[in-house]
Design a protein around this nucleic acid. Structure first.
Lengths: 236, 236
DNA sequence: TCAGTTATAGTCACAGTGACTCTAACTAGG
DNA sequence: CCTAGTTAGAGTCACTGTGACTATAACTGA
């Protein structure tokens, strides 16, 4: 009775087309406050559906690259950047995500460093937006970005992922600003510093950041693993 | 320069075929100790590649069902059961997962209740195995199961997912046995009980479990949400 | 030289938790 | 009926991590 299910496994129906998309996060100073905020690059739709609207960068995976390589590639193509952190987010496969044909999207999310992000390529059809001020997006991309933001917040709160949004050297106050921007709440500077100093992945350097109007803060480095798909490091 | 990337998004190459697979967990008493252990149903391959080996239940999604519905369906087809908990695990898309054609598998993981699992359908080509004694599996399915086990452990340790492996009524000691089986270490009964009693999702009933050789323990119920894809509850 | 600002160290009270002890309530066997 | 054995379940104690807060250090700019 149930044995026939093994047959079903290999019946070939018309497979839904597959796409890879990537939510790319980087920090940029806010125009108003100057404090770091999250930004996301989007590409303009140049055909129907949703012609003219902004959408996540993406496309079909080529036959000779892994899913992660496809994500990495469309990140490079839209921004010219290499990701500091890249991880699979979720596979979205609802029936009505795209008008007309049904598409299954495997979505990745990436973090890139601000120094690079500042000089990232922009053009008529590629533009960066503040993550909290996106306007109308194509498809279900607003929903996907919300989901990615949730994951980012979760990973920042419980993991050691915030450093991938910073450069090689950073002050503890800069790390705190990243946490505050992502989690959207203020943190006690003294307690936050105590917590970071307890982490073995954060090491002191003998450099200091000069140029402020106050006592120069010490610079630190992150010595944890580079964050390329930690969930899937050994997956073929 | 980068604007052309928007074109790439829609160039149509031959898309890799898509499959949905499901890792299904249930508790059964161990033959030796009688304590609960994790079991997984597998289906026998009835064609090449890997003819005769055991594999995860799965198949292509039909054009008219969501990915989760497809997972739910092949769960019903192989075991005759409805999942108590069902969540997306990961999309595996390496180039060499399957000899010959490249396949992208979106894998779900499920928990089913032991009362049902005990009477689950078995046949020549569908059989349950202890999760820690599987033997040689087809494709990369051993790797996928290891990954699912890691996720299960993590969710048990930090979430409230263990109850979906139990029936409606359970004693606190039974919950502890589930934790011990999944996490593979012993837990202090008194402290564990204190922790559970602090959780508002676990409520006392006025029933007791009779039939032991000792003081009858009180039965409790879980009042949290049913665990059908909490990550994706509102995703189209 | 002093005011302003941030860095950095330190203190205190409290909540959560691991290890442990003690009593309650049942069954089984004589 | 009594006692030993077993698990249920309550409670204690010391330690640790953490939020709130205070105090001092080191710089800049007027």
């Amino acid at each position: 009775m149930y044995a026939s299910s093994a047959n079903i496994s290999e019946r070939q129906a018309a497979p839904p087309p597959l796409a890879i998309s990537t939510v790319i996060f980087a920090l940029r100073p806010s125009e108003s406050s100057g404090r770091p905020t999250l930004w996301i690059p989007l590409v303009r739709r140049i055909r129907e559906p949703f012609l003219g609207l902004w959408a996540l960068p993406g496309g079909p995976p080529s036959a000779v690259e892994s899913l992660q390589d496809a994500a990495s590639r469309n990140l490079a193509e839209t921004t010219g950047l290499a990701p500091e952190y890249l991880e699979q987010l979720y596979a979205f496969g609802g029936l009505h995500r795209s008008p007309g044909q049904r598409v299954v999207s495997i979505v990745y999310w990436a973090l890139v460093q601000p120094t690079e992000a500042a000089m990232a390529a922009e053009s008529e059809n590629v533009k960066w937006f503040r993550a909290d001020r996106l306007g109308d997006l194509a498809f279900d991309h607003q929903h996907i970005i919300d989901y990615a933001l949730g994951r980012l917040r979760n990973k920042v709160a419980y993991g050691s992922v915030a450093y991938h949004l910073l450069g090689e050297y950073f002050t503890l106050a800069q790390v705190r600003e990243v946490y505050e921007a992502v989690l959207d709440r203020e943190l006690d500077p003294a307690n936050f510093r105590r917590e970071l100093k307890a982490s073995p992945e954060i090491v002191e350097t003998d450099k200091y950041l000069q140029g402020g109007k106050h006592r120069p803060p010490r610079l630190y480095r992150f010595t944890g693993l580079p964050g390329l798909d930690p969930d899937n490091r050994s997956t073929p």
